[in-house]
Nucleic acid binder design. Structure first.
Length: 616
DNA sequence: GGTCACACAGTTTTT
DNA sequence: CTGTGTGACC
């Protein structure tokens, strides 16, 4: 590696990446240059150690993170004036990796290469069908929560045959029965759900040591990002991949584990040394993102957790302004206050615009009031979250037609298109025999389907809501051009959430420049991995954050605290914390007391906004 | 097969 | 408050 590249890293970062072989644990604090170390390490492996990129596996938790990694590695390699390398490392999520493995080798365990991937909506539909067949009322058993339970069981790698021995009580025993039928149903439909992608791959490896062996040979170097958020299945897969060469680097921070409710277990990172006793551990504790006061605030909140290790971050950055805490009269006053502060900052400071700000809340339900105030005042914003693009009704409808073309066994999709009208279905079935889809591009198939079924006539251009749906279908068409092979297309839309395109979202302005210049609104979960110059954390009240459901449970409270830590550490320059004395929640006026997390902030770095706010 | 009224529940959501 | 699901009815 070129000296200049190496020199831009600090001592700890250099140490962490120059150790290339054997098990390595990098405890990387918020804003400590984690992605940097991972990408440099990969570049280092390729250029210095002459490792073929094809022998390196990089696993991340989002596709966005994966493509960022790829971009940055490519840049590093070309900056290092390497010949354009033929092989770049595989960088992707566990799910996309497993989908690829199963398409190739799933046949050994009865997984056919044209399987479809069921998302949460499909899963719920499947669950309803099964529960109906079993005469289980969806009143006493909510299909969504049964699905969630089964997901948890699968992530623990417990099969339908094994689960009954763990099931306790009526609910779990019923889940055990549904689980058996659900797996059978998926199999009959040629479908896998997200959890199956992982579990089936583990099974494939368990039953076919030679297949496992071929992947172990291929992936001689394994790097796993966000290791604190791995579940049992992902943890097992990591160990399997690294089982032969033991060149495994895991990166993460227990304090940022916020997906326990989804099976993530931060103990996987805490106990990594039990799995690999000869592990080399590196701590990255220098923070490049935030002011000292923000780090102090974050530390004072997270240090109340005693169930996991906590990194003590430090920075060479300035101390910065105090944390502003504001008690609003109600939820509208809260947002008005935030906007007033934004305007002050924009007016007084250079280089600040609406896009410098993010407003973070605990629950999506809170976003509506916030949006209303933004709309009312005409402030541009981008709302991240809500209904996922590919789970929107019109998208699911259109995709279902395509899925049935590819996999006629898929009854969930078939049922869905059946509900779109008898005539439409007949025309579709007639049309489906007329073409050989293997000879057509995705876009051609899509357009022919839309034409044959006259699907678009369901919507009326003059109705605003319908117009948005038509726009969304247009967006699917543009994705279709990117993936001319129908199987690739279907896999992509299953595994890759569409970017948040402002035009899908209620936006104040239709002017292109204004779109970029917008305040971001999102949940605390969604902000992980991002940073903003100014962060507003709103609704800091007991019952909202920490959420009411977490109040009675130590572990859940600990996770809420980590979530708060994640929120605080997103801020680069200035942090605002607000709560409302009274708020409208589910149509009820409630008054909550201030969040314990606010009370945990050290008084020396906090100022109440009743006084003049202190800027930069 | 489609529509309407009513009841009811309502964290977070990388894939 | 509001989105979703259910059951009754045309």
């Amino acid at each position: 590696m070129k000296k200049s590249l190496f020199e831009s890293l600090n001592k700890d970062q250099k140490a962490a990446l120059s150790h290339t072989d054997g098990p390595i644990l990098i405890l990387a604090g918020a804003g400590s240059g984690k992605t940097r170390v991972l990408t440099y390490k990969t570049a280092h492996l390729m250029t210095e150690k002459k490792i073929d990129g094809a022998n390196i596996l990089m696993v991340t938790f989002t596709n966005k993170a994966a493509s960022e990694m790829k971009d940055r590695i490519l840049k590093l390699l070309s900056a290092n004036s390497q010949q354009p390398t033929a092989n770049l490392p595989f960088a992707g999520t566990f799910h996309s990796l497993c989908a690829k493995i199963l398409r190739r080798d799933g046949k050994h365990i009865g997984v056919l290469p044209n399987f479809v991937i069921y998302d949460e909506v499909d899963k719920k539909d499947a669950m309803k069908t099964i529960m109906n067949n079993k005469n289980i009322s969806s009143k006493s058993f909510n299909p969504g929560s049964v699905g969630g339970s089964i997901s948890g069981i699968k992530n623990e790698l417990i099969s339908p045959l094994e689960y009954p021995q763990y099931a306790r009580g009526y609910y779990q025993e019923t889940v055990a029965e549904i689980y058996i039928d659900y797996q059978k149903f998926l199999h009959e439909n040629g479908a896998l759900d997200f959890d199956d992608l992982l579990f089936e791959t583990v099974k494939l490896f368990a039953k076919n040591p030679d297949v496992l062996s071929s992947y172990q040979e291929k992936f001689r170097y394994v790097l796993v990002d966000e290791y604190q958020d791995t579940n049992q299945a992902q943890y097992t897969l990591s160990k399997l991949f690294a089982g032969r060469y033991r060149n495994i680097t895991v990166v993460g921070d227990a304090s940022q584990s916020i997906y326990a409710w989804r099976g993530a277990n931060f103990r996987n990172i805490v106990n990594f040394k039990n799995d690999f006793p000869d592990v080399k551990v590196f701590n990255l504790e220098q923070n490049y993102r935030s002011t000292q006061k923000i780090l102090d605030a974050a530390f004072s909140v997270i240090s109340k957790n005693t169930d996991h290790p906590i990194l003590k971050l430090w920075t060479e950055n300035e101390k910065g302004p105090s944390i502003t805490v504001y008690e609003a009269r109600d939820e509208q006053d809260e947002v008005n206050f935030a906007i007033k502060e934004m305007h002050k900052i924009i007016a007084e400071e250079k280089n600040y615009s609406y896009s410098s700000f993010v407003m973070l809340y605990r629950t999506n339900a809170q976003s509506r009031t916030i949006e209303e105030v933004f709309l009312h005042l005409g402030i541009p914003y981008i709302l991240v979250g809500g209904v996922r693009f590919y789970e929107r009704r019109e998208i699911k409808d259109v995709i279902s037609y395509l899925r049935v073309l590819v996999n006629p066994k898929d009854m969930v999709s078939f049922k869905r298109i059946s509900k779109l009208g008898k005539k439409r279905l007949d025309k579709f079935l007639e049309f489906s025999t007329e073409f050989d889809i293997s000879k057509l591009t995705t876009l051609e198939i899509l357009d022919k389907t839309l034409e044959a079924t006259d699907y678009l006539s369901l919507y009326n251009k003059d109705v605003e809501e319908d117009l948005a749906r038509l726009e969304n279908i247009k967006e699917v068409r543009s994705v279709a051009t990117e993936f001319p092979a129908i199987l690739d297309f279907l896999e992509n839309i299953s595994l890759v959430e569409q970017e948040y395109l402002p035009q899908n979202k209620p936006l104040f302005s239709h002017n292109k420049d204004d779109r970029k210049n917008a305040v971001t609104l999102m949940t605390l979960h969604a902000v992980k991995g991002l940073e903003f110059p100014v962060v507003f954390m709103v609704g800091m009240e007991e019952g909202l954050f920490p959420h009411a459901r977490a109040l009675m449970d130590r572990e859940q409270l600990s996770e809420e605290r980590r979530l708060c830590y994640v929120g605080i550490t997103r801020a680069m320059k200035k942090l605002y914390i607000t709560y409302a004395a009274r708020r409208l929640y589910f149509g009820q006026r409630t008054s909550n007391i201030v969040s314990r997390f606010v009370l945990d902030l050290p008084s020396g770095i906090v100022e109440s906004s009743l006084t003049e706010t202190d800027y930069f």
